[in-house]
Computed example of a mutant assay.
Amino acid sequence: MADKKQAEFTKWFGPLLNALRELGGSARPKEVVEAIAKSENVPDIQREEIMKSGILRFDNQVAWARQYLVWEGLLDNVKKGVWTLSSKGQDTHLSLEDSRKLFLKWVEIHQKARKDKNSKKNIEKLQDEQGPEEVEHEIAPSLLEVLQTVSPIGFEHICKRLLREHGFENVFVTQASRDGGIDGYGTLELNPFVSMKVLFQCKRYQGTVSRSQVGDFRNAMIGRADKGIILTTGTFSEDAKREASREGAPPIELIDGKKLVELFEKVELGVKPKIVYEVDYNFFEKFIKK
């Protein structure tokens, strides 16, 4: 099983480089993940698989692939939230064998850097259970774990506060017995002349929001607002994502657990910022080699 997961993880090295080339050399993580899934015909069931941490396994594997490519100098590690090919990466094409060798190379470098004979085993375990940004510094419990422990009504009021912090006005949570599938509403001013009414639904989940649930929310909001938002501490199925953006139907924004955490961090709501320095292994590589 470990070998299978490792093979899956290294499998995305080449497709990730190819996806960035197709996207013009840089893109946001979500765009890259979507491009790889499309080019490699990744089935929905694989894309929807969730790890114990609540993270999508496929997304996590792609994120790990990106981390190794950064260490190799094939991707730049400059702007957060944007993955960018380096000049070296632009001209690099990786086969499965190339990817395997690259992986083993950096495992060896980490072993030497940490002077830990079990580094390889530890790294493989981390790749299965965490995202690359969590390796050097774990937060226990995480923001997402805390959000999953609040009461359903508490989560609704937290989401109300989050929407206000992001520019929404006149935000209200509806009464539970009279919500009709709508947990709250608010107004978003697009510019001094145009504003829109937005309805929102909050799902404090650890699982997956289905297509039917997105459809039910849309039916509840038709004729009542210009746009809808579903916020969850879980994830959305691929069918749910397609339903939310279905042509000819009122648009619905989907905010999953990962995006939810990013929105809290952006306005520093319920979290305190701290500086964390990440080791640039690519810089030290030439000094570690024999």
Rank of each mutant, 00 (worst) to 15 (best):
A140L: 14
L74Y: 13
V150P: 09
K121W: 02
L75P: 04
S53Y: 00
L144A: 00
K120Y: 02
R57W: 05
L85P: 00
W64G: 11
K125S: 00
G154E: 10
Q46Y: 10
E40Y: 07
W64S: 10
Q127K: 03
F103T: 06
N118M: 13
R66D: 02
D59I: 00
G54Q: 10
H157V: 12
V107D: 09
H137P: 06
M51N: 12
T84Y: 04
N122A: 03
V78Q: 13
I153L: 11
P152L: 07
E129P: 00
I123S: 04
V62W: 03
G54C: 10
F103N: 10
V82G: 00
P43T: 04
A113V: 12
V135W: 15
L144H: 04
N60S: 15
G89W: 01
G154I: 09
S151M: 07
W83M: 08
R47W: 02
L56T: 04
L102H: 05
E156M: 00
S99A: 03
T149G: 11
L85K: 04
I50G: 04
W71G: 03
I158S: 11
N41V: 00
C159V: 15
R66Q: 15
K105F: 07
E136V: 10
E49T: 12
V70L: 11
D98P: 01
E48Y: 05
K38V: 13
G131N: 12
W83Y: 11
R100A: 12
V107H: 06
V62H: 01
K38M: 12
V150Y: 10
G54T: 05
K112S: 11
D91A: 10
V150A: 07
K38P: 07
H157S: 13
E138I: 14
T84H: 01
S119P: 06
Q127A: 09
Q130T: 13
P132I: 08
E136I: 12
S95R: 00
S53P: 01
K117R: 11
I123Q: 06
K101H: 07
G89V: 04
A63R: 15
N118C: 10
Q46L: 14
I36M: 01
R47K: 12
